[in-house]
Design a protein around this nucleic acid. Structure first.
Lengths: 258, 258
DNA sequence: CGAACGGTTGACAAGGGTCAAGTTCGGTGG
DNA sequence: CCACCGAACTTGACCCTTGTCAACCGTTCG
């Protein structure tokens, strides 16, 4: 940071913005909750003293800590681009924080909707990661697989790749295991359980979810982290796609591996 | 995206940038590797067709899949701000990608070093998450705890909160369990094992790592994701701190108390 | 002094890993 | 058209890691 300042990397705009911030620090006590899961996301903080953590409470009564924040860390970038908090944050010991509003962050990105969108996209990917972390930490094989399939179902539906609650899934069970932290053998067993419960049917790579809602309930899926369309729901990709679709060309193959 | 365009949310600068991109699509075959772990990070892609995944290979021979990419997803934001890839990316089936350079991304962020820094900070936090994901998925209790403590050690050292290989850790064993996906009972057992192996000693909240290198080896720690100081290693936080420190109390006791 | 809390230890059970022996299916070659 | 092969999946037996429950201990705090 001093780095940044020294390097003179800050533009006049940056400097103006920084000076314009009304900075205020707040002393917070041990165990104090900075914000709860699912509340309005409006600000983030720099943690100046003390330790904090972000967490998710699960319906089965357990909780998963997602990230520890140490002095100097920024808390709350995770929720940028979402309207509600994906996780709560609480102090561990007493400390000091310095809050900023997302509004200020937006001004920082200033004129570029693309930059905002990219940031939001990155944050969104982080949300998916986070969700998987929760499942690896606190759920058994059946819940992990159910969650995995349901997430896939939602993401594919979003891009129109689901028909009749059914979609193609080109992953081997070994790869699924590598994603969920399970052995391929157990993935197979788990598929059988889900089939026996009538939640998933499968023929080769064709997956069908006879009753997606039932699955959703099993995995307490909060789909707003996938479906929420934020103000700037861009996806540069699509822009890129548009621009490109005109002049197609078969490309170059490079490496392969197995 | 069409959303973005329709909304007219794109500034003239954005549009110019988009038009200025030389877009090229590349057809990629099934199992093709887009890039390997630990190689130079210079570009990212929009996945236009096919499925892909990012992964980490572990020394114990297993592998952890971090994220699945479906058509429309952006691949490689993860590594923005790092010089080397934290994870490999491979195709699952055949598909089409559309590559962009990080350079272009930088131009997008254009004049604001702050914006770049924030993005990099977000990405960096994602790296920590990713690392925990790998440990939850593919490592036993002892390795998880060792990794957790070593990561803490590095992060605290970075901010000067380690003395004589020793630091204060204000977390209860239950909280550690919630972070690592373990029961509090087993956290206790695991601490005992590490103590018996001479890797960690502990007195109340005081943790000492007699031989940090030995720990590092046990957890195959790649510390560049914590220590690498990227070109724009800012941390807005510190700027904030600076701005604030002038007109606030000394309050520089770094952390902790119970 | 006595709760209450966090940590420790032991006994037991369960979820999941590993190994090994099938089974199914798509592809290949005769 | 059929025999064969390999990859992916399935199933069973067995064992190890970890969770659960419970009793116990040491500190801290009222």
């Amino acid at each position: 940071m001093r780095g940044l300042v020294r390097q003179g990397a800050l533009t006049p705009e940056d400097k103006a913005l920084l000076l314009g911030l009304e900075l205020e620090t707040r002393r917070v006590s041990a165990s104090e909750v900075l914000w709860y899961e699912d509340t309005d996301a409006d600000l983030f903080c720099v943690l100046k003293e003390g330790w904090a953590y972000s967490y998710r409470h699960l319906e089965n009564g357990s909780k998963q800590i997602l990230k520890l924040y140490l002095p100097g860390d920024i808390i709350g970038l995770r929720d940028f681009g979402f309207s509600r908090r994906l996780a709560g944050v609480a102090m561990i010991n007493e400390g000091v924080v310095c809050p900023f509003s997302y509004q200020q962050l937006l001004e920082l990105f200033g004129r570029s909707a693309l930059a905002v969108g990219l940031m939001a996209t990155a944050v969104r990917q982080q949300a998916l990661l986070t969700e998987r972390l929760v499942y690896l930490g606190r759920h058994d094989a059946q819940e992990r697989l159910a969650h995995f399939l349901y997430e896939l179902y939602l993401r594919l539906k979003r891009i129109g790749a689901v028909e009749d609650n059914s979609f193609l899934m080109p992953l081997s069970q070994e790869q699924i295991g590598d994603a969920l932290g399970l052995s391929p053998v157990h993935v197979s067993r788990t598929f059988s359980m889900l089939r026996d419960d009538g939640l998933v049917t499968r023929d080769r790579q064709q997956i069908t979810l006879p009753d997606p809602e039932a699955l959703a309930q099993l995995v307490e899926f909060d789909d707003n982290y996938i479906n929420e369309s934020l103000p700037t729901d861009l996806s540069v990709l699509s822009i890129a796609s548009l621009a490109v679709d005109n002049r197609k060309e078969p490309g170059v193959h490079s490496t392969v591996d197995k």
